[in-house]
Design a protein around this nucleic acid. Sequence first.
DNA 1: GGAAAATGATTAT
DNA 2: TAATCCTTTTCCG
Length: 295
Amino acid sequence: MPEGHSIHRLARQFTSVFAGHRLEVSSPQGRFAAGAARLDGQVLTGAAAHGKQLFLAFGNELYLRIHLGLYGAFDFGGDSTFLGASSIGAPRKVGEREIASDDDGGTYAGPPPPRGAVRVRLVSGHGWADLRGPTACEVITDAERAAVVARLGPDPLQDEADGAEFVTRLRRKGSPVGLLLMNQEILAGVGNVYRAEVLFRQRISPFRLGRDVAEGEAADLWKDIASVMSDGVAEGRIITTLPADRDSGAVPVPVEEAHYVYKRTGLPCRRCGTPVAGTEMGARKLYWCPVCQER
DNA sequence: GGAAAATGATTAT
DNA sequence: TAATCCTTTTCCG
């Protein structure tokens, strides 16, 4: 997916282009027709992200809860007041950047005919948003929204100060850190790219047990996650390598230099040259350097 | 034109 | 651990 940084960008985008506007809500695909009818014609009052959960608030006190899952994505379009990216969600290639929106110079004449399986379409007087492939898309009450959030661990992009809570939750467990970072009850927002990259940056083996991570190490881990994910929010893509570890000083980071270990099985570690190892953990691909992350 | 893969998560066995 | 859900794009023949 789209890891937490993408969802926070979506919340920001929805707030800036739709908040305060009355929306037409529909489900061109049909699978969300009943839910769309409950929101159609309401004003969008706000948008917020917690981890990978996106909540759109409407004037009738209902929320649209969206989880993009592994390949959900939003497409946007509209007039010149409708700024921001034209697509946020599942990337198609490693290191892919969001697509910048086209400047169609005020020729906006409404949304295009839906293409593919559009679960939800939101339309204001200035622009539109299409959602495809989400794992969750449902209308819920505020109490239900609160219940969803209550089940999640702290979100480093929301409350960077909640590090102590993360440290406690992580060190309570006897399972491998590589698994724990993917567990949204330990912290919310990290996915498969950030888990591999952050463990490399902190030189922690993904196989080390949560309870064997020292308190200081866990605190540093949290800080690094918050830092690198904030960069992701600012950049619109995941970049985890330090400039010193990248070959060229060219301003746009080449895709192949954006990561330390993610999807680099067999390639030399950028720090020590040892071939990057790959296996499966938690039914997802795991990458690490067996030397830099010995324990 | 078909399979595989993808930055997830839940449920069942 | 395995099966299942959701959709698009890429790669291979």
